[in-house]
Amino acid sequence: MEQLEFEEFYRSGQAVCLRAVLASVGDRETAEDLVAEAFTRAWMSWSTVSRHPAPYGWIVRTALNVRTSWWRRRRREVVTDGAYEVVDSASGDDVLDPVLLTALRRLPRRQQEVIVFRVFLDLDTRATAKVLGIAEGTVAVHLARALAALRQHLLTQRVLEVES
């Protein structure tokens, strides 16, 4: 019964979680790995996650946290190897609009996270605040600033496109 419940949870939410994580990390393969890891952890703690007020928010939050851990580990390994760190770049994956995603990834981390949870995951302000551990008012402020910055970026791009 528990497994059936989880499987339904996965089937219903894997795509939206993948989109949200993909928007944040920009690389399809990495995003899939992170989401799979997050769902695996969710299954291992299903009794807790199933009662979470925003379980898909839990998945995306976990995936992004895992990414941070991987990145830190990778950075240590890179430093140990004496090589330069390779910065993630837009993947060129045809499911991504590179212009907008580049703009998104230039936002401050917190603004980027608010966009991911509020827009791509479609969580409301309260759930986003809970998942991110910040006040609802702070979510609203970050969202407004992020959207303004993105709109400005879009306008600039359109102007450049017209001029060219």
């Binding site: 795509a15 399809r28 799979a36 769902f39 695996t40 291992m44 998104l104 791509f120």
Partner: peptide, 26 residues
């Protein structure tokens, strides 16, 4: 407009891993 643009910036995606594989890994 911006939210629509953001949503439109991502095509439809889906995980390659199946629910069974996730459960088995767990």
């Amino acid at each position: 407009d911006v939210i629509d643009a953001l949503n439109g910036s991502l095509g439809e995606v889906s995980m390659h891993a199946t629910a069974d594989e996730i459960v088995a890994a767990g």
